[in-house]
């Protein structure tokens, strides 16, 4: 009798974890709605033919490329030019990001990339493009006619853009298949899988979750050859199909912010081209290697980057699970989702 009483006092403490575990399991299990069967080509068409629709969504990007994570927002004192660009690209790839996308009427969009106590915003409203960085309290403004606009660097980090870039690259070297339906951001989606037909690439497969109803890409995951978990993944965590508040696309620079006006894009591109020469591409499909005539020597002299690279025949290698970068002894930079030997061969040609 007394023992039973003692035990019953502890019952609630035992029940709480059970309830929590139960509700977590239930939430994870809530299955996707049944979608009609479709062939991979049909899903691809669904994806390509999707209409412009207003929506707002939160997204998350995670990457595990087998590289040490660089501390975010770190200032490298003597990094400039190419070295700074490489560090920035590494930071974007190796650290996790989350943010929101708002898409309104045609030519209205706002992207927010969150940092713990900061945010970067890109606002596109008709011809107006605003970029805001809360850490610097700095605003960049440009007037760009909608026709000749290319995605700003930050816009590359949305599931939509990433999926479009992947699809563009699909050719005969890729095998398409559709796996069991998945649920992403509360939406039932087709899981379109792109598998390279060649062994000469580090990429094992690319999976794109395509909304079964609207054809919107909801998640892109890239898995390295032989790995179980994706090395890179970007996807929506929640999605609202209602039109976002129109005020979100009206941006006025805040008081005290530094506003930089950027000149017309044509001039801008000219300057860009001089600084960053177009890379030469060798090979095709998954095996292609981009060769940049950059000053690779300057990059390796950066101590942090030198630490990440290892000496190999013919240069220094920055190796990740998905992409290899070879900085050749003659200063050229070779980039590709291919094994090191292929990069060395391309460098020798």
């Amino acid at each position: 009798m007394f023992m039973a009483r003692t035990w019953s006092r502890w019952l609630p403490a035992a029940a709480v974890p059970l309830v929590v575990a139960g509700s977590v399991a239930f939430a994870a299990q809530a299955g996707a709605d049944e979608l009609p069967e479709r062939t991979p080509e049909d899903v691809l068409t669904l994806l390509a033919d999707r209409d412009h629709q207003p929506f707002s969504g939160e997204f998350e990007q995670t990457s595990d490329l087998g590289l040490p994570q660089l501390p975010g927002g770190m200032d490298l004192p003597d990094a400039d030019g190419d070295a700074a660009a490489v560090t920035a690209a590494l930071e974007a790839l190796t650290s996790d990001h989350s943010g929101r996308v708002f898409v309104g009427e045609q030519d209205q969009a706002r992207l927010q990339v969150f940092e713990s106590f900061g945010e970067r915003d890109v606002i596109v409203n008709g011809d107006e493009v605003w970029v805001y960085d809360s850490d610097e309290n700095a605003v960049t403004h440009a007037t760009v006619p909608a026709d000749d606009r290319t995605a700003t660097p930050d816009q590359r980090f949305t599931p939509d853009e990433v999926a479009d870039q992947v699809i563009e690259a699909v050719g005969p070297s890729t095998e398409l298949s559709v796996r069991e339906d998945v649920e992403v951001a509360g939406r039932a989606a087709y899981d379109l899988v792109l598998t390279p037909r060649t062994d000469a690439t580090l990429v094992g497969e690319v999976a794109i979750a395509v909304d079964g109803e609207t054809g919107q890409p909801l998640r892109v995951s890239v898995t390295a050859r032989g790995a179980d978990a994706p090395a890179f993944q970007i996807g929506y965590t929640s999605l609202d199909r209602g039109a976002p508040d129109a005020d979100l696309f009206e941006f006025t620079p805040p008081a005290g912010a530094e506003v930089e006006e950027i000149a017309a894009p044509a001039e801008d591109q000219g300057r860009d081209a001089a600084e960053h020469p177009e890379p030469t591409v060798v090979g095709s499909g998954w095996e292609s290697v981009a060769i940049l005539d950059a000053d690779g020597g300057g990059i390796t002299s950066e101590p942090l980057l030198a630490q990440l690279t290892t000496a190999v025949d013919g240069g220094r290698l920055l190796g990740t699970d998905l992409v290899n970068v070879l900085i050749a002894d003659d200063g050229r930079v070779l980039v590709g989702a291919v094994p090191l030997e292929r990069l060395q061969a391309a460098a020798a040609e």
Binding site: G118, E119, Y132, N137, T252, P253, A255, A257
Partner: peptide
């Protein structure tokens, strides 16, 4: 006075 949010809105 007016305050600036992280998103740059006032």
């Amino acid at each position: 006075g007016e305050a600036t949010l992280l998103s740059g809105d006032t």
